[in-house]
């Protein structure tokens, strides 16, 4: 799916004290690309991610997915759109605490009618933790459950907000490596927000933000693997 952003703006705050977070953002994401979004804290990366993925509405501008404008959708349509196309991986994992690993992944699988979701649990190396609760897992394991959950719903586009932010170097590399391999296998588009400049070397496209604007955008000629980048 090709994604087109056209002059997106978004502000927070009250009428008289309006604080612009996104100040006119336009770019395209090609189908199957791996895009990394970089920028200092508070520059609006998470907000942009939420807006593109249909979790929040922009104040103005259009977001086209293969020429369908999601900003014109009703809440119900938007929910349905997310169900059909979008997967998320959040920094804080956000697993459901009262369900086991298996059932957490099933949450994603059920949305896509995916009956073979246990393959994905296997792929992220958690078969032996299937019946554990999230509180019994390490941070890296929890993140892998979140990845499995997102992939089990067979998304066309996967959004990741600092997926390695809470992980140490070793588990961070492991998780990134999984993601890249799974992307090749399942062929989805990936948009990742990160603080880690090194991760940009793994991406096809890099976008740099500052104060709600895009300040730089380039394509990498050589793409490195998770074990070739610095940390």
């Amino acid at each position: 799916m090709m994604i087109e952003l056209m002059d997106i703006t978004k502000s927070y705050g009250s009428e008289e004290n309006l604080y612009p977070v996104l100040r006119g953002i336009s770019f395209n994401i090609q189908d199957g690309d791996f895009v990394v979004l970089l920028g200092p804290s508070g520059s609006g990366k998470s907000t942009l991610l939420n807006v593109i993925s249909g979790l929040e509405r922009p104040d103005s501008g259009r977001i086209l997915y293969d020429n369908t404008d999601i900003t014109a959708m009703s809440d119900e349509e938007l929910t349905f759109f997310r169900k059909e196309y979008v997967g998320f991986i959040f920094q804080q994992y956000y697993l459901l605490p009262n369900l086991t690993v298996d059932k957490n992944v099933k949450m994603g699988a059920d949305l896509a009618g995916n009956r073979n979701y246990r393959q994905i649990i296997e792929a992220v190396g958690l078969v032996d933790k299937m019946d554990k609760y999230p509180s019994e897992l390490s941070g890296g394991e929890q993140q892998r459950v979140a990845i499995a959950r997102a992939l089990a719903k067979k998304p066309r586009i996967l959004f990741l907000d600092e997926p390695t932010g809470a992980l140490d170097e070793e588990t961070g590399r492991l998780v990134l490596d999984y993601l890249c391999r799974l992307r090749e296998e399942y062929r989805f588009t990936m948009l990742m927000v990160t603080h880690n400049n090194n991760i940009a070397e793994m991406a096809g496209t890099v976008i740099r933000m500052n104060s709600g604007r895009i300040v730089d955008r380039y394509n990498n000629s050589t793409i490195k693997s998770a074990y070739e980048i610095g940390w």
């Binding site: 369900l99 298996d102 059932k103 059920d110 509180s135």
Partner: peptide, 25 residues
């Protein structure tokens, strides 16, 4: 840690495996 969930008995887990996620939740 929400310790209340950890260490809970898991005997029945196997049995009701094939119902939908909404039912599980």
């Amino acid at each position: 840690r929400e310790s209340s969930y950890a260490g809970k008995k898991r005997r029945k887990e196997q049995k009701d495996k094939e119902q939908s996620f909404i039912q599980d939740l």
